[in-house]
Lab assay of single mutants.
Amino acid sequence: GSLMYASIFGNVSAIIQRLYSGTARYHTQMLRVREFIRFHQIPNPLRQRLEEYFQHAWSYTNGIDMNAVLKGFPECLQADICLHLNRSLLQHCKPFRGATKGCLRALAMKFKTTHAPPGDTLVHAGDLLTALYFISRGSIEILRGDVVVAILGKNDIFGEPLNLYARPGKSNGDVRALTYCDLHKIHRDDLLEVLDMYPEFSDHFWSSLEITFNLRDTNMIPGSPGSTELEGGFSRQRKRKLSFRRRTDKDTEQPGEVSALGPGRAGAGPSSRGRPGGPWGESPSSGPSSPESSEDEGPGRSSSPLRLVPFSSPRPPGEPPGGEPLMEDCEKSSDTCNPLSGAFSGVSNIFSFWGDSRGRQYQELPRCPAPTPSLLNIPLSSPGRRPRGDVESRLDALQRQLNRLETRLSADMATVLQLLQRQMTLVPPAYSAVTTPGPGPTSTSPLLPVSPLPTLTLDSLSQVSQFMACEELPPGAPELPQEGPTRRLSLPGQLGALTSQPLHRHGSDPGS
């Protein structure tokens, strides 16, 4: 009898404990919600809404976190579960008819179910419309201010047509639940991603989709105040780019002037030289400038040598048109050559190039014969006009050509200096018209024969001689050997007369 009593008592207590286990969990969670309300000092109306929603959600799901349970299964099984949970929507909604099984599984994985109690606001006026909503159960109302403009029910759709707008718009009203509602919502990016994977279904979906109420604000059109608020930074940046392009296009129409201050000032006329910023005076940081632009901040801005204009002085008759350009485009679109090309026009420029290279940067340069637009006047290309890779490749080509020119210049200078040193070592320090008596009659020769300089066969020296023939050397430049009979510069000019005159010897006659 005691054994029977113990078994009955144990079973009854276990049954009672299981009955009250759900209630215990409910009270535990309710205590957490109330502690949250007390800690954050939530006001009474919002506090009442929180408690009511918790009670309804507990009775609806029995305190089970559906998302946590669903995430515990593998992905393939999750797709089947989501397809079952959203079967009513996918079967009865017209846009989803005719979709393949794979497309429906992908869509079912992207849908999220939302449960809303009465009085809950789903979308506020001015919120971004980031999702498309399908009503599965219940009814909602749409308000503009305090005026109800629409009441939607089961199988209705609200949001915005995503295929017509590249960016999400703003809501033009509040969406509030009238009863307990079940909503299926899919985010904008998720829907577009699935439709991109199934393009054959995309056309059918957009053609058959009928949005019951379009929440997009109709005033959000390009150029409206609301649109400016939504895309303020983007609009200002776009206007700045367009104004920069218009100014650079105007600059290219004036090829007669070359400016070292950047493309923003290349198009300024002579009357605007004294102004601080020219056409860019209202925004000094709008356009890029070269490193020399920092010198323009000092006094005497109108007389600054940074602004270059072609000189009108005539060229000498024998002067060549100019050196070879550094870039391939210089032959086609440049009416002034790079300062480095002028360094190779003569030997005198070679000796004085490194010492006063900055001073020569603004000297007169030889002109190319074609009066085409200036290379320095070409505006900086924006990322939309020329690819970045093209600019980098041009810079690399320019750097390689500069290296080759520097190597060639160093070799030419070394060769010229070597020839000058050899000339100085071969010439005796001094010569006299009267020579010392020699031991015999073989001493009648006034000077030792001097062998002429070897013929220069280097390509670089031939180019130097060509430049010497075309360029007029300055007075202080050293002379180079030329073709024809060679003669030492330090010898007297009348050596031929010395050989014809008898030598005057000093000596005593033994017979006297």
Results as ranks from 00 to 15, higher is better:
Pro373Leu: 09
Arg422Trp: 11
Pro270His: 04
Phe467Ile: 14
Phe467Cys: 08
Asn214Thr: 03
Tyr165Cys: 04
Gln254Ala: 08
Glu392Ile: 03
Arg273Thr: 04
Ser224Pro: 14
Leu162Glu: 03
Lys170Asn: 09
Leu308Arg: 08
Ser283Cys: 15
Thr407Glu: 05
Val450Glu: 10
Leu178His: 06
Pro317Lys: 04
Leu152Pro: 01
Gln237Val: 10
Thr499Asn: 05
Arg245Tyr: 11
Pro371Phe: 10
Pro379Gly: 11
Ala166Trp: 06
Gln361Val: 11
Gly346Ala: 08
Leu409Arg: 03
Arg240Trp: 10
Asn155Val: 03
Leu398Trp: 13
Pro492Ser: 05
Ser259Asp: 14
Gln237Ile: 11
Gly507Asp: 13
Ser171Trp: 01
Arg404Trp: 05
Pro379Ser: 08
Gly138Lys: 01
Arg358Phe: 10
Phe467Gly: 10
Asp127Thr: 03
Leu376Lys: 03
Thr455Ala: 08
Asn403Val: 14
Thr248Trp: 07
Tyr198Asp: 02
Ser500Gly: 11
Ser381Thr: 08
Thr425Pro: 10
Ser432His: 10
Arg386Val: 06
Ser207Gly: 13
Ile157Leu: 07
Leu242Trp: 14
Thr455Lys: 13
Phe353Leu: 09
Ile221Ala: 11
Cys337Thr: 07
Glu471Pro: 10
Arg367Leu: 08
Ile211Trp: 02
Val147Ile: 07
Asp329Arg: 07
Ser224Asn: 12
Arg394Cys: 06
Ser352Glu: 06
Leu230Lys: 13
Arg265Pro: 12
Gly262Asp: 13
Ile221Tyr: 06
Ala397His: 15
Pro320Asp: 08
Ile211Gln: 02
Phe213His: 05
Pro316Cys: 04
Pro255Glu: 12
Ser289Asp: 03
Gly256Glu: 13
Asp174Leu: 09
Ala477Gly: 10
Cys368Ile: 09
Leu164His: 11
Pro475Ile: 12
Pro452Gln: 10
Gln363Ile: 05
Phe311Pro: 15
Ser202Glu: 10
Asp396Trp: 13
Gly269Trp: 05
Phe234Asn: 11
Asn163His: 11
Met468Ala: 08
Gly126Met: 01
Phe205Ser: 01
Pro339Phe: 04
Gly159Val: 02
Ser285Leu: 11
Glu257Ile: 09
Glu193Met: 10
Lys154Gln: 14
Ala260Tyr: 12
Leu261Lys: 12
Phe344Cys: 14
Leu448Met: 13
Leu215His: 01
Phe244Gly: 11
Met413Ser: 07
Ser462Cys: 08
Pro510Leu: 09
Phe201Ile: 08
Gln418Leu: 04
Asp190Ala: 03
Pro371His: 09
Ser460Gly: 11
Glu479Trp: 08
Ala397Ser: 08
Ala397Phe: 13
Glu471Met: 06
Val147Cys: 09
Leu417Ala: 09
Glu479Gly: 04
Leu129Asn: 04
Ser382Trp: 05
Ala150Gln: 03
Leu409Pro: 04
Pro168Glu: 05
Pro502Tyr: 14
His204Gly: 08
Gln466Gly: 12
Asp459Val: 04
Arg246Thr: 11
Val464Leu: 11
Pro369Glu: 08
Arg144Trp: 05
Glu257Thr: 09
Leu398Tyr: 08
Thr179Ser: 10
Gly173Met: 06
Ile157Pro: 02
Thr336Gln: 08
Gln482Asp: 15
Leu498Tyr: 09
Arg367Val: 09
Ser312Met: 13
Pro373Glu: 08
Val149Ala: 06
Asp127Trp: 01
Tyr431Asn: 13
Glu200Ser: 06
Asp190Pro: 01
Pro449Arg: 10
Pro449Asp: 11
Asp459Ala: 09
Asp146Pro: 13
Ala497Met: 09
Gly223Trp: 12
Val434Leu: 13
Ser303Ile: 14
Ser333Phe: 13
Ser286Cys: 13
Gln363Pro: 09
Leu426His: 10
Asn403Arg: 14
Lys241Cys: 10
Ser341Gly: 10
Val194Arg: 02
Gly256Val: 08
Ser381Ala: 05
Pro321Val: 14
Gly281Ile: 08
Arg265Phe: 13
Leu402Met: 04
His504Cys: 06
Ser345Val: 10
Asp203Tyr: 08
His204Lys: 11
Val434Tyr: 09
Arg167Val: 08
Ala343Gln: 12
Thr130Gly: 09
Leu365Tyr: 08
Arg385Ser: 08
Arg273Gly: 11
Leu162Phe: 11
Pro371Glu: 08
Glu406Ala: 06
Gln421Leu: 04
Pro383His: 06
Val450Met: 12
Pro321Lys: 09
Asn172Lys: 10
Gln501Met: 13
Ile350Asn: 07
Pro474Met: 13
Val258Cys: 14
Arg247Ser: 09
Pro314His: 04
Gly438Gln: 04
Leu183Gly: 02
Gln466Met: 13
Glu200Met: 04
Leu398Cys: 04
Cys181Leu: 05
Leu398Met: 15
Arg386Cys: 13
Pro263Val: 11
Asp146Gly: 08
Ser271Lys: 04
Leu375Ile: 07
Pro441His: 13
Val175Lys: 01
Pro321Gly: 13
Lys332Phe: 11
Leu498Ile: 10
Thr444Gly: 06
Gly145Phe: 06
Ser333Trp: 05
Thr212Asn: 09
Thr372Asn: 08
Leu376Pro: 13
Glu472Trp: 04
Leu491Ala: 12
Ser303Asp: 11
Met468Arg: 13
Ser432Val: 11
Gly269Tyr: 15
Asn214His: 01
Leu458Asp: 08
Phe351Cys: 04
Leu132Ser: 02
Pro485Ser: 11
Gly287Met: 05
Cys470Gly: 09
Pro317Ile: 15
Asp127Cys: 01
Pro437Asp: 10
Gly438Met: 09
Pro387Val: 06
Gly323His: 09
Arg240Asp: 13
Glu392His: 14
Phe205Asn: 03
Gly232Leu: 10
Asp203Ile: 06
Leu498Thr: 08
Thr336Met: 06
Leu195Tyr: 02
Gly264Val: 09
Lys332Arg: 13
Pro199Gln: 05
Ala177Gly: 02
Leu405Gln: 04
Ala477Gln: 05
Gly359Thr: 10
Pro492Val: 11
Phe201His: 11
Leu191Asn: 01
Val347Cys: 09
Lys154Trp: 01
Asp335Glu: 07
Arg273Phe: 06
Asp335Asn: 05
Ser357Ala: 10
Glu319Asp: 12
Ser207His: 10
Ser293Arg: 05
Gly256Ser: 11
Pro339Leu: 11
Asn403Ile: 04
Val434Asp: 07
Pro371Cys: 08
Val194Leu: 04
Phe351His: 14
Leu420His: 09
Ala433Trp: 10
Arg307Gly: 11
Gly359Arg: 09
Thr444Val: 09
Gly440Trp: 10
Arg188Gly: 03
Pro446Lys: 15
Arg236Pro: 12
Lys154Gly: 06
Ala397Arg: 09
Gly322Ser: 07
Asp196Asn: 10
Gly264Tyr: 13
His184Pro: 01
Ala469Tyr: 15
Arg307Glu: 10
Asn403Thr: 11
Glu324Met: 12
Ala343Ser: 11
Thr248Gly: 09
Ser289Asn: 12
Leu164Phe: 06
Arg315Gln: 09
Gly232Phe: 10
Gln237Arg: 11
Ala469Asn: 12
Pro371Asn: 12
Leu191Pro: 03
Leu162Cys: 10
Met197Ile: 06
Asp189Tyr: 04
Gly153Ser: 09
Pro387Arg: 09
Arg247Tyr: 12
Asp127Tyr: 01
Pro161Arg: 10
Pro314Gly: 10
Glu200Phe: 02
Pro383Met: 15
Pro475Gln: 07
Gly232Asp: 10
Leu230Gln: 10
Pro161Lys: 07
Ser393Met: 12
Ile151Tyr: 04
Arg216Val: 04
Pro199Met: 01
Thr212Tyr: 01
Pro475Glu: 05
Thr179Tyr: 01
Asn155Phe: 12
Ala268Pro: 09
Pro428Gln: 10
Pro454Gln: 10
Leu473Thr: 07
Gln466Trp: 03
Leu461Asp: 13
Ser410Glu: 08
Leu162Ile: 12
Arg367Cys: 07
Arg358Gly: 12
Ile350Ser: 10
Lys241Ala: 12
Gly476Leu: 12
Phe311Tyr: 11
Val194Asp: 01
Leu503Met: 15
Gln418Asn: 05
Thr248His: 09
Leu178Asn: 03
Ser304Thr: 05
Ser302His: 12
Pro168Trp: 05
Pro481Thr: 13
His506Cys: 03
Glu319Arg: 08
Leu405Asn: 04
Gln482Ile: 13
Gly169Trp: 02
Ser445Thr: 11
Arg137Ala: 10
Pro305Asp: 15
Leu308Phe: 06
Leu402Lys: 03
Ala469Ile: 11
Thr248Val: 14
Gln399Ala: 14
Ser312His: 06
Ile186Pro: 01
Ser357Lys: 04
Asp296Cys: 06
Val148Arg: 07
Pro310Ala: 12
Asp146Thr: 11
